[in-house]
Structures are given as C-alpha cells and as structure tokens.
C-alpha cells in the first residue's frame, strides 16, 4: 500500500528579526537588523497510510503547526520532500486542495456576520461539490453535530463550541480525504471536546479519511489516535503505538489503594515507592514485573477495600520524554 502522506528529510528554517529592549536598541535596529535562524522542523521523515489516525504530540514550539502548514501547502519547506497522495503541497493544485483540509482551532473560516449556512454554500461552490452530494453531506453533518438550530444564526452570535462544530462542518463540505487538525478542541469544555472527538472519529471510520491531529489535550490523542508521533525541537522522538510509548518511557505501573482503616506510610513504603499517601487513597509506583507480587502482598497484609492498577498519566510520560530529550537537543541548536 502506498502511503497517503510521505515525508522525507523535511527541514524548515525561519529567519527571525530580533532586537534587545530599549530606545537606543530600537534606533540601532532601524539601521541594521539582526536576523536569527530558527530551525522549526529539523529533518523529519514519516509515512502515513490511508485511513490512519495519527496524533502529533510535542511541547509548544516543537514544530507541530509548522509541519501541518507544510503538509497543507501554506508553508514551503526549506528542503526535503513532502507528498500528499502524490501531490506536492507547495504547488497547491486544485486537485490537491480538494483532497485536503486544515482546521486551525484558533483561526476561523466562517464568515463572521453571516450564518454558517452561507459559508457551507460558499464552500460548496468553491470546492465544486455536486448538489446531491452536498445535500447528503449536509444532512449527515447536521445530524451528527446537531447543527439544526445553529446554521441560520450569524456566526458571531454562536458560542465557541457551537462555532467549532460549524467550523468542522464547513471544513468537511468537500469530504476531504486528508484532514489536518491543529488544536481542534482548544478552549472547549470537556463534553464539547468529547463531541468533537467522537465526530472526527466517526468521519474517519465512515469515509476512510486520513487524520493528522495535534492537541494539547492528551485525552484527545489517547482517545483518537492509535499511532502517535512525538516531536520536539523539530525532530521526531517517537513514532509508533501510544501504548508502546508509555511502556517504553515509563515501564512502571501505579497501584491505587483504598483502605477500610488508616494505614501508616511506613507500612506502604515497605512494599514499594509511595507516590502519594492521604487519608482517602494511596498511590504506589511499582516496576511492571513486580506488580503481581506487590498486589499480593498488599492484599495479604493491609486492610485494602479497593485496588486498581494504572499506567502513569500520559502527561507525565510526555514530560519525561521531553526532559530526556533536552540535553541532547540543546547541543544540536545554533547558539542564540
């Protein structure tokens, strides 16, 4: 099977104008400007198969959004190769643009003072969608997202969540085969995040669309993406299944215990490392191989009323991964 997104040795540099604070420096900068080269994407390579759901993870400034913009043709790579379903994005051919969509959670395409239905209609015309297909798509989107009451109100009067739903619908009018989502759930409340997630997943499953998503909310990624690509400082740190990543970085497990009567911390410390110990519950950190033994000892020796075994939270896994990357990456960067 040929990959729908193929990236080789992709590199993107920006020249950024910098100046120190102060009036004198401002005057100097009028005559002479200092530019600093920033490497946003530093030689990444990846392949994504049609229909995959892939999560792009990384701290702020890791190069996630830059990469998405390169994949959708908005930014031109400094060097390297990008092919989206056989198209070179930077050429922005019609055929390419009709296959993809980029949704930016912080930028909107809805016409601000008109109802979303006008934006849908506009996109129908712009993407040259046949009338029958358009109507079928709109029926489906309306039902899935619950848009009935929204599409006739001016976009500016919609709440953030309602606007995001319409934004997604507008992005899908032409049924893109590749969907790039940059922080689609930013600023949304928990239930709206879940709605957006479910919807995106369903779209992927029903239409076989490929999904590449960045998000600050680990939950989004954990729920949606069987595969994650972690990038930091423009380089890929990990590419593979989410579960494997967790096991690799943090092979330990957490045992959460509740007791029927108070237990001394020293009793717990005898079993394993204590992460947290409070009246309500205690958390132990245990190497993966030792889980069975520790659980058995705890059940035998302590007044356990409830016991669960968990993986460490994704956030912690990530921060540990990035922390490990720091010393290596720091030497690879141009001096400021």
């Amino acid at each position: 099977m040929t990959s729908i997104l193929r990236v080789r040795a992709l590199r993107k540099e920006f020249a950024v104008h910098e100046r120190p604070p102060g009036v004198a420096a401002a005057l100097r900068s009028m005559l002479h400007r200092e530019y600093k080269k920033i490497v946003a994407v530093d030689g990444i390579a990846l392949d994504i198969q049609p229909g995959e759901r892939v999560g792009f993870l990384g701290p702020n400034g890791a190069g996630k959004t830059t990469a998405l913009k390169i994949f959708s043709g908005l930014l031109h790579p400094t060097s390297g190769e990008v092919l989206v379903d056989g198209h070179e994005p930077r050429r922005r051919e019609d055929a390419f643009l009709k296959k993809i969509m980029l949704v930016l959670g912080q930028k909107q395409q809805l016409l601000w003072d008109l109802p979303p239905s006008e934006t849908f209609e506009l996109n129908r015309a712009v993407y040259d969608v046949p009338r029958a297909q358009y109507e079928a798509t709109m029926r489906e989107l309306t039902a899935l997202l619950g848009l009935e009451d929204l599409v006739k109100r001016p976009s500016r009067t919609l709440s953030l969540g309602e606007r995001m739903k319409c934004e997604l619908a507008a992005a899908l009018v032409h049924r893109p085969r590749v969907l790039f989502l940059d922080e689609p759930t930013i600023g949304l409340d928990v239930s709206m995040q879940a709605t957006v997630r479910d919807f995106v997943k369903r779209y992927n499953e029903q239409h076989g669309a490929t999904l590449l998503l960045t998000s600050h909310y680990m939950e989004d990624v954990a729920q949606l993406c069987p595969r994650v690509i972690v990038i930091d400082r423009g380089a890929i740190l990990y590419d593979g299944a989410l579960g494997d990543l967790v096991t690799r970085i943090r092979p330990d497990r957490r045992i959460v215990l509740r007791f029927s009567r108070p237990v001394a911390e020293s009793d717990l410390a005898a079993l394993a490392t204590v992460v947290r110990h409070s009246a309500g519950e205690s958390v132990l950190q245990v190497p993966k191989e030792a889980v069975n033994a520790v659980v058995g000892r705890a059940l035998a020796n302590l007044p356990v009323s409830d016991l669960t075994v968990q993986s460490p939270p994704l956030e912690e896994v990530m921060s540990e991964l990035f922390a490990r990357n720091r010393p290596r990456a720091a030497t690879g960067e141009a001096p400021p």
Binding site: D94, E118, P154
Partner: peptide, 24 residues
C-alpha cells in the same frame, strides 16, 4: 486554481459576497 473552477463558483461567490455587504 483553475479559471474554470472559479468561473463555476462565481454566482455563489457573488451571492454570498452580496449577503456580506448587506450584513455590513
């Protein structure tokens, strides 16, 4: 960005543009 595509979208583009002008 074919001209053909733009031409076909023209009526809708005009109509939505007019709607915007009315809103403004």
């Amino acid at each position: 960005m074919s001209l053909r595509n733009t031409a076909r979208a023209l009526p809708t583009l005009l109509r939505v543009g007019l709607a915007e002008a009315v809103a403004y």
